[in-house]
Design a protein around this nucleic acid. Sequence first.
DNA 1: TATGAAAAATTGGTTAACCAGATTGGTTTA
DNA 2: TAAACCAATCTGGTTAACCAATTTTTCATA
Lengths: 233, 233
Amino acid sequence: MKLEILTKNDHQQLHNEIIAKIRDLINNKNLEPGDKLPSERMLSERFEVSRGNVRETIQKLEFYGILKSKPQSGTFVADIGLVAMNGMIDDILALEDPDFKSLVETRILLELKTVRLAAKRRTNDDLEKIETALESYKKKVLNNEDAVQEDLLFHLAIAQACRNSTINRMMLIITPEIINNFEKYHVCDKNQGPKRIKEHQDIFNAIKDQNTQKAKEMMKVHFNELYKYCYNI
Amino acid sequence: MKLEILTKNDHQQLHNEIIAKIRDLINNKNLEPGDKLPSERMLSERFEVSRGNVRETIQKLEFYGILKSKPQSGTFVADIGLVAMNGMIDDILALEDPDFKSLVETRILLELKTVRLAAKRRTNDDLEKIETALESYKKKVLNNEDAVQEDLLFHLAIAQACRNSTINRMMLIITPEIINNFEKYHVCDKNQGPKRIKEHQDIFNAIKDQNTQKAKEMMKVHFNELYKYCYNI
DNA sequence: TATGAAAAATTGGTTAACCAGATTGGTTTA
DNA sequence: TAAACCAATCTGGTTAACCAATTTTTCATA
């Protein structure tokens, strides 16, 4: 068997092809939720791909809750029903790579929520961590140094204080993609140090006072330029 | 070397230990962004784990944009800075498993946004897909059949119409977890068929009329009981 | 000494072989 | 007849061997 090294994109495309084949297999064989899929070896032979590729694809479908592997037993169709399964797989296959606009739109949505929840739920410990992040940020900016990282950590500290593990996870997922795009498009203008410091300080104060409405408003102000940038581009 | 089969939890814990060790390594050796990590073989030997475990962990950190593997070359520290890297890794290590409340809270947040965006941006094609999903849902409910899947697909069709790939991806991530928890806690009460149909119909009409405000309101009404259930529990 | 080509070592990616637990079918026994 | 047991087989998980691209080293030559 020939050996090929695939790029990330090739990989994704191959996974999608295998996903479609698994879906067709389930539909053609009239497999019900809870039924066992053919073994990884059988699938790799039938689809004419390596067993590793089959395993990776199954893991992806497990991530989305569509399949369920049991060690030394087999891979099973999850209990979400065939209609839902078909719909979700179609959605997964149609997923596009995230564009900058959708990333920013999502970040704003998430952060307007995290800041409100943080204002409501923050413990004193949370508050201390946010303040520490704020101070590091201020220090860098006042020294005229690049403070992108400290900026980011301030926002992540707020996310942690919101006490919602799902939102927190999503913030972590989009953060690196945001950073990369920021660098690519040079979004951050450096000459607004004092203004940015005040915005961060206002957000912090609102969280400290547990003023949820104010916290949201201040975050909105903070995102104002990013918002405009994103929708004018 | 002894062979062990690990549960999902053991795996996550092992990954977290390796992540912490990689972080310490980067800090102790003063590796800068762009620098090369020791090879996978070296790491597996030093950490006394299998190379497979090292590879899985590196892939996880790649997913969060912290490392970057180059084939036949090495694994590199990404260009996000040491401070940000340490902060993000700490966040990743502190991530808890999603609880039901955080899932519902996030779902409501996302869907109040998707419905507004869908009302604004939906194409005629999107509208047709949503209507198809609605009709399947109605049919099932009127026949007194279980319609959880069709309910779900209606909401996913709206998510697709919102034209934001990032939000769409997040909806797909939380959907199976929502389903599992719904089943576990028996959230869905079956005796509200006509009421639920009307709520879905109202949402659809608002999207059709491109009335963003109304769409949001109707979705809020639709989530009202779930909201109460979630915050009273 | 500088340079360039070739070979040796190193790398992440890939495949194949192996492992132990789970399943299954047939046989035996109460 | 049915229940219990055992061995052969099948399963996903794991490890080790292998591959080809890359990087580093070496050494002959200008």
